[in-house]
Simulated scan of single mutants.
Amino acid sequence: MATPSQPSVYTTDHSASVLRTHSWRTAANSAGYLLPHLRSNMKILDVGCGPGSITIDLARLVPQGHVTGVEYVLDPLEGARALAAANGVTNVSFEIGDIHCLPFEDDAFDVVHAHQVLQHISDPVKALQEMRRVTKVGGMVACRESASMTWYPQSDKLNTWYDLTTRMAVSKGGNPHPGSRIHVWAEKAGFARKDITKSAGSWCFSSDEEREYWGGSMAQRSRSSGSATMALEGGFSTREQLDKVAQGWDEFREDKDAWFGLLHGEILCRK
């Protein structure tokens, strides 16, 4: 088993606004690069599962297998279990687990998956080593991380949001938007270059419903979440600046021409 875990560098919490954002994620819109490689009897580990929306989708795709979701704190797991029960998905379980020190034996899973987790990790190479350790020979590690963002129309308020969140992540020891270099970390973690498949995926929020979801949840985060509290208590921002950021998201949500794009880097690493 692994050595003791590293401290978390996560810059927000699991408040309602954050879980609203995470719950939108599905296997189709967040793990499409992995889906063609799944078999019905696979045993899968979903690291950093949050509210479990991706985890439960993966369980549906391996009906003769099992999916374990792990999160480093208990907060979102009760909701994840309730979501699975409400959807009648029984081949899934949720437990506490730290990516730096996974509570599983070597060679335990066919697939180990993480979505937007490495950017919040103090030591992503060690995390990938742990993911590799618990993957069976012949299995794979799958990771997807944000690489860049763009939006229209240009907004000083959203520029302030991007600068603020980036500075906070760096100050905590995180690695904001590392999608373009996660394959380099994978090599350092022990995967051969020939066994790493690189790809890219994207999100786009432009329809009325998409802007309402994305802009609404991001505005709520700026007004009330662990990230907002950390910004104020850490001296990264003032309440006035956070209010302006929230206004920027409200303006995005209300503008029918507004568009937000997010590019992800993806890796499939064969062991």
Rank of each mutant, 00 (worst) to 15 (best):
S8N: 10
C204Y: 00
A169Y: 00
V134W: 11
R193K: 15
D13V: 05
D243G: 02
N29W: 04
V125L: 08
A27Q: 02
H113C: 12
S199I: 00
S146T: 13
T160A: 05
P178A: 03
P76M: 10
R39H: 15
K188L: 13
F236E: 15
H66K: 11
T229R: 07
E187D: 06
T238G: 15
G174Y: 03
Q119I: 07
A246R: 01
K194L: 06
S217I: 06
N41I: 04
T197F: 06
V62E: 02
I182C: 00
A147H: 04
K244Q: 14
G174M: 03
G79I: 11
I44E: 03
E233I: 10
E187F: 08
Q116N: 15
E187R: 14
G32K: 04
A228T: 12
V111T: 10
A258D: 04
S155Q: 07
W214R: 05
H115W: 07
A189E: 04
P51F: 05
Y162C: 00
W151R: 02
A108Q: 13
A246L: 06
R211F: 03
E233A: 10
C269H: 03
V67H: 01
A16F: 09
G173I: 06
C269Y: 00
H14R: 12
Y72N: 11
T3V: 09
R144Y: 01
F191P: 00
S17R: 01
G50R: 02
K188H: 13
V184E: 15
D106Q: 08
P103W: 05
S207A: 06
S225G: 06
G138W: 12
P51N: 13
D107I: 03
G138H: 13
N159K: 03
R133M: 10
R181N: 12
D208Y: 01
T55A: 14
D57E: 08
M42W: 04
Q6W: 12
K43Q: 13
R221H: 05
D98C: 09
P103R: 10
Y72I: 13
Q247D: 14
D195F: 07
Q119S: 11
Q220H: 10
A2C: 08
L268D: 01
R60L: 12
F94K: 11
P178D: 03
D75K: 05
S93K: 15
M168S: 07
R221P: 04
G234N: 13
H14Q: 12
L35K: 10
A228Y: 09
H115C: 14
I56D: 05
K256M: 10
L232P: 12
E187C: 11
K188S: 13
D46F: 10
D250A: 09
G201L: 01
R181T: 13
I54R: 02
W203G: 05
Q247Y: 03
L61H: 14
V47E: 06
L45N: 02
L77H: 10
E130M: 12
C101G: 09
A82G: 11
D98L: 07
H14S: 09
C101V: 06
F236P: 13
L164M: 11
G79A: 15
K136T: 02
T238C: 14
Q247C: 06
Q154L: 01
F109W: 06
F191L: 03
P36I: 09
Q119P: 01
D123S: 11
A127H: 07
C143R: 03
E78R: 12
F94N: 12
S122A: 15
A2F: 07
A59P: 05
E266A: 01
D208Q: 09
T166C: 06
P103H: 07
A169L: 07
